[in-house]
């Protein structure tokens, strides 16, 4: 693996001057992913959402490479079209340069409204990388719940009220769904481990055919934590097994990190304002339900990865 000293010499493809909020996880995730493309020519596609809106306010673009946004629910189809053009022009000898293609979508643009377009693009086998920047809600329109929003979270469309304590449903497991497309590479990663992000992004760029990466990309506005603590918080997501790091390469599941001890989900929930209500008396059942869901999913994941299905020692 390249060292940071070497990686810092790669030309920056997502420059300062964009208007993401201070400390937005998207800025970190995008920089890490694009850095792994090293000196390749890259075309970036992007779904509507905070990233796109904040990075291309005319006449300024933060993208130091070719970029296209067309709509919210179609980043998969749009970048697929770009890649089809590349293939066609190459085949006909109308283009000599090599290119790599990557699309970024938020969880809304990926798990929900853009799901069909992404599924289609993956099934067709375009040679593209699709990166979901999962901040677990529709942030750009003001923090509404998505199918990636964790159970219990307080969002503006799953508000913690007197009767209903936040979102009632557990998250959709999109990474597993993408793996079920039998694409060459699907992975889930977290910025707390930059080597893991880098390695997976590099692999995704290198494999022939479609690759999918899901990155937990915290939003300080929507999650309401202390902005500088982003890396600690993501680390807690991994340690509590809320956000396991794993990859599925050509159908083979592999767990990339196994916590040494049992860290209860409260460690991840506590620092975040969106879960504050869960700690009020009477909502203990919610935390219990969340923990059960996590434990069950963890055991299932271990099994898929060929590991002994047991919880870490308490």
């Amino acid at each position: 693996m390249a060292t940071l000293k070497e990686l810092a010499k790669v030309e920056e493809r997502f420059v300062g001057g964009h208007r993401l909020c201070a400390g937005c996880g998207h800025g970190i995730s995008v920089r890490m992913v694009l850095n792994a493309a090293e000196d390749a020519n890259v075309v970036v596609g992007c779904a509507t959402g905070c990233l796109e809106v904040a990075s291309t306010i005319y006449p300024y673009t933060a993208w130091n490479c070719s970029f296209i946004h067309s709509a919210f629910e179609n980043a998969g189809a749009t970048i697929g079209g770009v890649e089809a053009a590349y293939k066609s022009l190459k085949k006909q000898g109308k283009l000599d340069k090599d290119f790599k293609f990557v699309a970024f979508g938020g969880d809304g643009g990926t798990y929900d409204i853009g799901f069909q377009s992404l599924s289609g693009a993956m099934e067709r086998g375009h040679n593209i990388v699709y990166v979901c920047l999962d901040n677990e809600a529709y942030m750009n329109t003001g923090i509404q719940r998505s199918s990636a929003t964790p159970m219990g979270a307080d969002t503006t469309t799953s508000p913690a009220g007197k009767v209903v304590p936040g979102k009632q449903q557990p998250r959709k497991d999109l990474t597993a769904i993408m793996a079920a497309h039998n694409i060459p590479y699907a992975a889930q990663t977290a910025i707390s481990n930059w080597q893991d992000v880098h390695r997976k992004a590099k692999k995704a760029f290198d494999v022939e055919g479609p690759a999918f990466i899901n990155i937990l990309s915290p939003c300080p506005r929507g999650w309401r934590y202390n902005t500088p603590d982003i890396v600690e918080l993501v680390k807690a997501a991994v340690e509590t097994r809320f956000w396991p790091m794993y990859e599925v390469e050509n159908g083979k599941w592999k767990l990339n990190y196994k916590p040494k001890k049992y860290v209860p989900i409260e460690e991840f929930l506590k620092p975040q304002g969106r879960f504050r209500h869960l700690f009020a008396p009477g909502n203990e059942h919610m935390i219990k339900a969340i923990q059960e869901e996590i434990d069950n999913r963890w055991l299932a994941l271990l099994e898929r990865c060929g590991e002994t299905p047991e919880l870490p020692p308490k």
């Binding site: 990686l7 010499k9 800025g27």
Partner: peptide, 18 residues
């Protein structure tokens, strides 16, 4: 170590020669 460079969301840490 350039960990700060890696994590700045705004590419606002300038590194020279690593």
């Amino acid at each position: 170590c350039l960990i700060c460079w890696r994590y700045c969301p705004d590419a606002s840490i300038i590194s020279t020669d690593g």
